[in-house]
């Protein structure tokens, strides 16, 4: 991956794996500071923009959600390969959090509850069109190295803004004491 060319605007992306979108909501809660971000960086991928393919050369990617399915895993490996600084955003990405609550008993009871026990019409576990679940739902760094961890469920808008603007300034932020799990 080539280094940021002088004068080139930093490229920012977000991605949403197994999570509730709350971290993206919190990102939107930075309100008018979104304009400031848009002025400093190109948002090249994520639910805010219309790109279909994850671009090849991204400076900062915020990952929301845990890695729960084969599709999540494919995405996270691809994103890692194409990103300079990978940020695990929020407790699901950092600890697997709520998606990880199925880990003590595994995916089978989960699928049965969702697609058989609580269903009256055509009960059955879908095999097509839905990515298969991994045996365990794990945090992003179980599969790919993560550069910055931002805890919180969700992390506050202020924290998210600080992290992003710090990274755009070329600094790896200290996150510990100002954010927390939950």
């Amino acid at each position: 991956m080539d280094e940021t060319a002088p004068g080139r605007r930093p490229r920012l992306a977000t991605i949403w794996l197994d999570g509730c979108s709350g971290c993206h909501m919190s990102l939107l809660d930075i309100d008018e500071r979104l304009l400031e971000l848009a002025g400093r960086a190109d948002i090249v991928y994520g639910c805010l923009v219309d790109a279909k393919e994850f671009p090849l050369d991204v400076d900062v990617t915020l990952v929301e959600g845990a890695v729960s399915s084969e599709e999540d895993l494919r995405k996270v490996l691809e994103v890692r390969e194409r990103t300079r600084v990978l940020v695990a955003l929020g407790d699901c990405a950092v600890t697997s959090n709520v998606p990880g609550m199925r880990n003590p008993f595994g995916p089978k009871p989960l699928l049965e509850r969702a697609y058989i026990e609580n269903v009256t019409i055509n009960p059955g576990i879908p095999t097509e069109g839905l990515p298969a679940l991994l045996p365990e739902s794990l945090p992003v760094h179980a599969w790919a190295p993560v550069d910055v961890f931002v805890t919180g469920c969700p992390p506050s808008a202020d924290r998210i803004f600080e992290v992003i603007s710090g990274l755009l300034d070329g600094q790896l932020p200290e996150v510990g004491q100002v954010s927390r799990f939950g």
């Binding site: 890692r80 045996p135 365990e136 794990l138 945090p139 760094h141 179980a142 599969w143 790919a144 190295p145 993560v146």
Partner: peptide, 12 residues
Amino acid sequence: AVAGTHAGSHGG
């Protein structure tokens, strides 16, 4: 081995 830094799944 995966590239993750986390000790990962205990996988049963």
